[in-house]
Design a protein around this nucleic acid. Structure first.
Lengths: 108, 108
DNA sequence: CCGAGATATATCGGTCGGCGATACGTTGGT
DNA sequence: ACCAACGTATCGCCGACCGATATATCTCGG
């Protein structure tokens, strides 16, 4: 149920269009504005787990300029999971900032 | 640098006023609206780590109705860390929801 | 009056996941 | 000719969350 930052970004990177592993790395860096540099050791393991959990599935394989590209696609349940996690994170951030606001106000 | 959900909520619970371990557990449950049930095995270890990192420090000890209460207090750098993490999570959630919105719009 | 559950702190071992390193092969630029 | 980028894959280490367990007191219901 709980989801790591890495997995969250992997799933988010797959929203809209299928991507291959190495492509996900770059997309995550862009999405997170450089905050998350996904390691390949993390990626492939996570991809396998997510596939087993049904949040992601194989899309297709391409050979581009002699290099194999294995594409992954988000499932319906994967999209739901991203949306739910985003909502949770939004709520969490909101709760914290509200607290900080209130505290600063009382100490102004 | 990276911060777990549990640590984030521990720090958030300490914003504004010092609390003791068991009190933090309840406060986190309230803050997260039941989403995070902090385990004591997690709490005390995290508290030690956070103290060592200077994000939290000992406040005082009380004995209330025969029960020892050890209070912890957020440091300045701890407050900064919470604020930064909240901002990051907000940005992350925003990035994901923006993607999901755009995708839904194109498939309406 | 007795037992169960809440309050409160603390530790330990298992387990899982992220990370660094390593491996291997191609393409492209210098 | 070499080295960086591209691309997939695996392995072992380490750190953190968690469940279980231990200990002790107070409170409430039956």
């Amino acid at each position: 149920m709980a989801m790591s930052k890495q997995v969250f970004f992997i799933l988010t990177a797959l929203v809209g269009e299928p991507r291959h592993g190495y492509g996900i790395v770059g997309e995550v860096a862009e999405l997170s504005e450089g905050r998350v540099k996904l390691k390949v050791g993390t990626l492939y393991g996570a991809l396998d787990r997510l596939t087993a959990e049904g949040l992601v599935e194989h899309d297709r394989e391409e050979v581009l300029k002699g290099r194999l590209r294995r594409y992954y696609r988000l499932t319906r349940s994967g999209a739901d999971a991203v949306a739910a996690e985003a909502a949770r994170q939004h709520a969490n951030a909101e709760a914290a900032t509200a607290r900080l606001r209130g505290w600063q106000a009382r100490h102004a």
